[in-house]
Design a protein around this nucleic acid. Structure first.
Lengths: 344, 344
DNA sequence: TGTTAGCACTCATTCACTTAGAGTGCTAAT
DNA sequence: ATTAGCACTCTAAGTGAATGAGTGCTAACA
C-alpha cells in the first residue's frame, strides 16, 4: 500500500536514524546520491508517512523519527539479509573450534562475543534443564543427619542439593535407596521426575527401606529443578553507551529488570522458534519500552533447546544483528547437536 | 591534637553531610542546639580544619565537606557503636531461624537483607572453597568418550566437570580409578588436591589402570577449582539512588567493576580479620574513588571463612553500617559454625 | 498532475546577563 | 577569646535574544 518512494524514504530514515540517533530531516534525505527528489517532495511524503503512523516528530519543527509501527514495517518488509565480514564470522566461529567443548563455557563465551560485536546486551539461556534425562543418582552422606543428593543428567549437567536424613537412616539404607532410584528412574526426564517419584518409586522405597517416608520430602525437593535453563549475560553495561540511556531512570529500570530472573525469562516466549523481533512496547514491559529484543533459539541434541536474546535500543541495527544472531544460532546448534551423541 | 571544639565540629559536619549530601555551612552548624558558638567562631575553626586537611570546599563560597582524611579521622576516633532497632536486629536474625540451613540460600538472603537495610550494595563471598575437604569422588560416564567427574566436599559443596575419556577406557577402569581416588584422597583439602594428585595418586593409577596417562590431564582440571568462594550480590542497583551517582560515567565504572570477578575480589584483603573500613582512594581502584567499602569476615567451621563487603558512597553512614555488619557477621559465624559439625 | 522553489513560522539550543541566596574571610568591636 | 558586621565570591535559577534546523503551505512550473 505504500508507494515505492515512500518505502525508499522510510528505509533511509530508519537507516539514518539507526546510525545517528538524531531525527532525520528532508534536506538530509535529499542529499543522499540515490535520492533524486527535492526536500519539498520528501516533506510531502513524510507528512503522508506520518499520517499513516510510520513516522513521528519529537516536536513541531524537528525531523522525523520512525514510530514503532515504522520499525515494525521496516523489519517485516525492508530487512535484507546482509553478509557479514570475514572477521566477524571468524570471531563467532572461533568459539566452536576448541575440541573440548564444555557447554557452559561455550555459552558464556558466546554471550561475550555477541555483546562485543553488537555493543548491545546479550542474554543466553542454557537448554531447558527439565528435558534433560537422568543418567545417575547419587547420595553422599556428610554427617549422621545430612547428605548431598546428586542427579547427573545425560547432558552432563549436575543437579545437587543438601538433604536432611531421617533418624536412624543407616548407610545400607542409602545404598538401597540409591539403587532403587537408579533402577527405576534412569532415562526419565527431569520434567517427569517428580510425578514418577511420587507415583511409583516412593511405594517401592517404602517396601524396602525403613523410615522411607521422611526422606521422601527431601527427594521431592531435589527433583524440583527450576524449569528454565541457566541465564548468562554478556555486555550488561553496554547499554550505558547508547545515547538513549543518558536518562538515569531508564538505566535503573533496565538494570533492575535484569536482576530479576523471572522478568528476564519473560523476554523469551516459549512458542518461538527461529528468530523473532520484538520492538519497544511489544515486549510488554515498562522498562523495555525504548528497547527492542531479538531472540533466537538453538537446539541441543534432538529435544532440547536454548535461547539467545539481544537487547538493544529501538533504533538498533536490526539487519546486522539478525545476521549475527543467525550465525551464532546455527553455530551453537551444530556444536551441541553433533556432540550431543557424545553426551555434551 | 585537635581541640575538643574542632572534634565536635568535624563530627557535626560529617554527620550532617552523611544525611544531606550537601556541603555544610557555619550557620547550619551553629543552629544545632548543642552547639553554643556563633557562626563566625565556627568559620574560624573550619578554616583551621581545612588547613589541617580534614575538610574541603567544593568552591570558594560553599560550605565544607569532609575530605578523605576527615572521614578517616572520623571513623578512627569518632565512631561510636550504636544500638540498632529491634526491628532491624529481628530482620537480620530471621534468616537464621530456618531450621534447614542451605548455606547458599542463607548467604544469598543475607546479601539481600543487608542491601535492603542499608540501601547500599552488598557483596558476600562464600567460604573459600579451597579449604573444603574432599568427601567423595565420583565419575559418571555419559558416553564412550565423555564422563562427568564429581567431587563432593565436607561442606556439601559439589564441584563437577565434564571430562574426556581416553580410548578404550572401560567401566572397570572407571571403577578402579574412583576407588583409588576415594581411598587416597578423602579428607584432603581442595587446595592440596592438585599436588597430592600429582605426587602420589597418579603413580598408583598408572600401575592399576591402562591408559591412565591420558586421564591424568582431565583429573588435574577437575582439581583446579577457583580459589575464592562464590560471589553473591545484593542491591546492585541501589547505588543508582545515591545522589553522587547522577554521573553516568561513575555508574558505568562501578557496574563494569562489579562485572569483573577479579576486581571484585580485590576489594577484599586476604589478611583482614574483623571489620575494616576503606575510604575512597584507599581502595586503590579508580572506580571506587568516591566510594567506601566496609568489609567483615565470618567463619565457617574451624578453618574456613567468608567475607562480606558493603559498598556505599564515601559519605555513607559508617556508624550504622558497621553495627549492622557486625550483627550479620556474628550471626553467620554462629549459624555456619554450629552446623558445620553437621557438615553444613 | 506531479514536482519544486520560496517563504513564513515553530521550536530547541545556546549564550549572555541578571538576580537571589548561601556562604566565606576579614576586621573591628565586645 | 568571641562575635557582629560587611564586602566579596560563587552557584543556581531565570530571562531574553540570536541562531539554525526543520516544517507546512502556497504558488509556480514542466
Amino acid at each position: 500500500m505504500l508507494t515505492n518512494r515512500q518505502l525508499q524514504i522510510l528505509q533511509v530514515i530508519v537507516d539514518d536514524f539507526v546510525n545517528s540517533a538524531q531525527p532525520v530531516g528532508s534536506r538530509q534525505i535529499s542529499k543522499k546520491e540515490w535520492i533524486t527528489y527535492s526536500p519539498a517532495t520528501i516533506r510531502n511524503e513524510m507528512a503522508d508517512l506520518e499520517e499513516l503512523g510510520f513516522l513521528e516528530k519529537t516536536h513541531t519543527s524537528s525531523g522525523r523519527v520512525p514510530s514503532e509501527k515504522g520499525y515494525r514495517y521496516y523489519v517485516d518488509h525492508l530487512l535484507q539479509p546482509i553478509s557479514m565480514s570475514e572477521r566477524e564470522i571468524g570471531l563467532v566461529q572461533s568459539i566452536f573450534k576448541n575440541q573440548i567443548v564444555e557447554m557452559e563455557q561455550v555459552i558464556r563465551e558466546s554471550a561475550n562475543i555477541l555483546s562485543d560485536l553488537t555493543s548491545y546486551t546479550t542474554i543466553l539461556l542454557g537448554p531447558n534443564v527439565s528435558k534433560h534425562r537422568v543418567k545417575r543418582f547419587q547420595i553422599v552422606p556428610l554427617t549422621e543427619q545430612t547428605a548431598v543428593a546428586i542427579i547427573v543428567t545425560d547432558n552432563g549437567h549436575v543437579e545437587n542439593r543438601t538433604i536432611t536424613l531421617p533418624q536412624g537412616f543407616i548407610p545400607v539404607d542409602i545404598e538401597k535407596t540409591v539403587n532403587i532410584l537408579n533402577e527405576r528412574l534412569v532415562g526419565v526426564s527431569l520434567l517427569e521426575l517428580q510425578s514418577r517419584l511420587e507415583l511409583e518409586t516412593f511405594e517401592v522405597l517404602r517396601q524396602h527401606v525403613k523410615t522411607a517416608d521422611s526422606i521422601i520430602q527431601s527427594l521431592k525437593n531435589v527433583a524440583f529443578v527450576q524449569n528454565e535453563g541457566k541465564i548468562y549475560f554478556g555486555g550488561k553495561t553496554n547499554m550505558l553507551n547508547q545515547p538513549e540511556f543518558h536518562d538515569l531512570n531508564k538505566v535503573r529500570a533496565l538494570m533492575e529488570m535484569m536482576e530479576k530472573e523471572s522478568q528476564v525469562i519473560s523476554l523469551f516466549h516459549p512458542g518461538d522458534r527461529g528468530i523473532h523481533i520484538r520492538i519497544g512496547s511489544e515486549n510488554n514491559h515498562l522498562a523495555m519500552d525504548d528497547l527492542s529484543v531479538i531472540t533466537a533459539t538453538y537446539s541441543v541434541g534432538k529435544e532440547q533447546e536454548g535461547s539467545i536474546a539481544i537487547i538493544g535500543p529501538k533504533r538498533m541495527d536490526y539487519q546486522r544483528t539478525v545476521s549475527l544472531l543467525d550465525v551464532m544460532r546455527s553455530g551453537l546448534s551444530r556444536v551441541f547437536s553433533n556432540k550431543s551423541n557424545n553426551g555434551l
